[in-house]
Design a protein around this nucleic acid. Structure first.
Length: 432
RNA sequence: GGAGAGGUGGCGGAGCGGUUGAACGCGCCGGUUUCGAAAACCGGUCUGCCCGCAAGGGUAGCGGGAGUUCGAAUCUCCCCCUCUCCGCCA
């Protein structure tokens, strides 16, 4: 949710922000609806003032006859108030969905672009491996080593479903646990579990709804309607919904591993093979809730990015860091930086820069979510302010298993287990 | 699933249908007092929105929504949530 007062003062800022994000919104029409709403509100409040005044007067009258006469005079006013209130409510109902659609304008340092193809590579880490044999894809490795079973996954759960088995399942748990441990034990994050089945308020509050409604599984429609979350970001960020935090307790740093559900609507035919794009996966996610300070947000953004990089460095997986362009950062973000890990099976000989696939996504949202969530804190002067929120992946699996399996494969078809994961696999060094 | 009880300000806890945004207590902030502190005493202490340069004024809010009424925290209905007991169960 954007700041309505700021929208009134700087409509062009939001119109331009939406254009940069390739989102269609008619700011002028929204402002007009806003003015109509305000007019209706002023009218209602004026009439209500009259009514309250008269009612108080009636309460003071002692003489039954006088009282009766005064009450009789109230009939018309009562009707007017009722009508004015209805007009006000109608106007409010009209503008609310419009406001939820207005994107947060991208920060000035976000490059303009229409889609992911125009994202900008900031820097790289690690040297993509040169194989002296023909490397297998994670699909081939996974099947040959008995780590993945797509066939039965599809049989039981439909397309984009899979089973991890044996050391595949263990590896999956190992990466997630390593990520969680790093954040809680070394980075000072509070480890959490989160609900993955949530109310609509949590989805709307974190900015996934109404825009992304078709991406979420709607479980149990009706009065108890709940949705499956596509990330622990929902549970972690909404945790303090409707609360006023003490400034001294900020920043709040939370991390959780959760199962994530995504319908992947509109991606038919895209990344259909393998573990890259699936309907259900597990992810270790970091969330920071900090003071309302742009510089502090930016600092946290870099910091959280560095944690994700550290994860990849410890796994010794080559990656590149990408500044997403205005057309690719979604309506919520002021800025978004992705990390793309190198996946040999996605590389092709013609393009030396190919082979990178998104494994992490770091978002900076400023007040966007906290306004929707009514998530505030009391500052030094005792003033209530909206918090800033940020989030980033620490590790998402099985997607992260793609670069692990593919980069660590050996000529004999075995896979060496990354050293940092061995403690989580009872010291085992190799698969196969 | 069956049977009850309840949801009021940061917390506890009142509240005959009519100056109740809400007594009282605690907490918190400021002041007096003190060498300093405690205690005591005095004062202050919710939020959204609208109007206003401001001071201030208006409006809304007692789980949520609808209704009765000139007027609802107080009455009626629906929903949500919490708690207790019984049953069932990973």
């Amino acid at each position: 949710m954007i700041d309505l007062k700021d929208l009134r003062d700087n409509p062009e800022k939001y119109q331009r922000g939406a254009a940069l994000k390739r989102v269609t919104v008619d700011i002028a029409a929204i402002l007009k609806a806003d003015e109509q709403r305000l007019a209706a509100q002023r009218e209602f409040e004026r009439l209500r003032f009259e009514q309250n005044k008269a009612s108080t007067e009636i309460g003071r009258l002692k003489e039954p006859a006088e009282k009766k006469a005064a009450i009789a005079r109230m009939g018309e006013l009562k009707q007017q108030v009722k009508e004015a209130e209805e007009r006000m409510k109608t106007a409010e109902a009209q503008i609310e969905p419009l406001l939820l659609q207005i994107p947060q304008p991208p920060d000035a340092d976000v490059p303009e672009g229409k889609d992911a193809s125009q994202n900008v590579v900031l820097y790289r880490w690690g040297e993509p491996r040169k194989f002296n044999f023909t490397p297998k894809s994670h699909v081939d490795l996974g099947l040959a080593l008995g780590l993945i079973d797509f066939e039965r996954g599809v049989k039981i759960a439909g397309s984009r479903s899979f089973y991890l088995r044996s050391l595949g399942a263990e590896l999956h748990q190992a990466v997630l646990r390593m990520a969680f441990d790093m954040m809680t034990r070394e980075k000072g994050f509070t480890g959490m579990t989160v609900p993955v089945l949530v109310r609509e308020e949590a989805m709307r509050g974190t900015g996934f709804f109404p825009g992304g409604r078709d991406q979420a599984y709607d479980v149990d429609p009706g009065p108890d309607e709940r949705f499956l979350t596509g990330t622990a970001e929902v549970g972690l960020t909404a945790y303090h919904m409707d609360e006023v935090l003490e400034e001294s307790t900020l920043p709040r740093k939370y991390v959780a591993v959760s199962t994530c559900f995504r319908r992947e609507a509109g991606t038919y035919g895209k990344d259909t093979a393998g573990l890259y794009r699936v309907h259900q996966f597990d992810k270790c996610e970091q969330v920071v809730i900090c003071r309302n300070d742009i510089e502090e947000s930016k600092t946290w953004h870099r910091e959280m990015l560095s944690y994700a990089e550290e994860m990849l460095k410890r796994l010794n997986l080559p990656y590149r860091v990408v500044q997403c362009c205005t057309g690719d950062i979604g309506i919520k973000n002021a800025s978004q930086i992705d990390i793309e890990s190198w996946m040999p099976s996605r590389a092709n000989d013609k393009d030396p820069d190919s082979g990178y696939g998104e494994t992490h996504s770091a978002s900076r949202l400023y007040e966007f979510q906290s306004r929707r969530l009514n998530l505030r804190y009391k500052d030094a002067e005792g003033k209530l302010r909206f918090c800033h929120t940020l989030n980033n992946t620490v590790a998402a699996s099985p997607r992260i298993l793609i670069p692990i399996l593919e980069n660590y494969q050996n000529a004999d078809g075995t896979v060496t287990i990354p050293e940092v994961l061995r403690p989580y696999l009872n010291g085992r060094e190799k698969i196969g």
